[in-house]
């Protein structure tokens, strides 16, 4: 079923991962590896568990009342759910971009500077300025906002807000960036810009993206995992999955027979 798991090169690795919300089991025994320096797309119909899996990687599920996790999930071989691992440290290494752009109602500068500031990544103001400028540059937003860094982050357009959120995530210099349907609230032009950005970020970061759009998965990802009803049905190279899937379920979903 899981035809392609790169041995030893996995950045994030799940083995027998079960997730329960109260009595309801959201994920059934997931075995999935995510390779470093690649974009991995998680696809599947609504409620299939792909977002749940994503939120396990930086333990955002901790915030959900009654969520339980069993099995192992490792980042660089270290257990993410280890009691000794501080979740703050984990989230500094695994950044996240949410479905709806959620900039803080503060200035654009403050939005980006917040992460480095709470983690103490900059020694002085000049260093902080540099981190902010670099992050905005990498997020392809610097040219648009350079002259108005003190304006509110919420005054930007939807697409700009989402790129600001990406800049905010990059500013902490994470190793993995999780994206939960980052373009679902954006128009096609803004979507194209974000996709372009994801492609550029691939060189420096491991990216996991949940998407409803199969075209998007095909455009931005190198590997694709297909979830259905809380189970991982198939994972493989994106091209293979979209052209020659092994499982009839995958075939049905990508050809639009259900989903």
């Amino acid at each position: 079923m899981n035809q392609y798991i790169p041995k030893g090169t996995a950045k994030v690795s799940a083995r027998g991962l079960d997730v329960f919300y109260g009595d309801k089991q959201a994920l059934h025994h997931i075995d999935l590896d995510i390779a470093a320096g690649e974009v991995t797309a998680l696809i599947g119909p609504s409620g299939c568990g792909k977002s749940t899996f994503l939120r396990c990687i930086n333990r955002m599920n901790d915030l959900v009342e009654g969520a339980r996790v069993s099995g192992t999930l490792t980042l660089d071989g270290n257990d993410i759910h280890d009691r000794r691992l501080d979740v703050v440290q984990l989230r500094a290494r695994v950044g996240m971009v949410f479905q709806k752009p959620n900039p803080f109602p503060k200035s654009i500068y403050e939005n980006v500077a917040y992460g480095p500031r709470i983690h103490g990544l900059a020694r002085d103001r000049a260093e902080l300025d540099e981190i902010v400028m670099n992050s905005l540059e990498k997020a392809g937003l610097l040219a648009e906002v350079e002259s108005r860094l003190s304006e509110s982050g919420t005054s930007l357009s939807g697409g700009q807000q989402q790129r600001l959120c990406i800049a905010r995530a990059i500013a902490v210099n994470p190793e993995v960036i999780l994206m939960d349907e980052p373009c679902s609230a954006l128009d096609p032009i803004a979507t194209a810009k974000v996709e372009e950005l994801i492609d550029e970020l691939r060189d420096n970061y491991t990216i996991v993206i949940v998407t409803h759009s199969m075209q998007q998965a095909a455009r931005v990802s190198q590997r694709t995992a297909f979830f259905h009803l809380g189970k991982l049905i198939e994972v493989g190279g994106t091209e293979e999955i979209f052209t020659n899937p092994c499982e009839p379920l995958t075939q049905g979903y990508i050809t639009g027979r259900f989903g």
Binding site: M60, V87, Q89, L90, A92, K100, F104, Y114, I118
Partner: peptide, 15 residues
């Protein structure tokens, strides 16, 4: 206060 603000801060590693 919208939960998205809390998630944004938590996602950055704020305690």
């Amino acid at each position: 206060v919208p939960p998205s603000i809390r998630q944004a801060a938590m996602g950055l590693g704020a305690s």
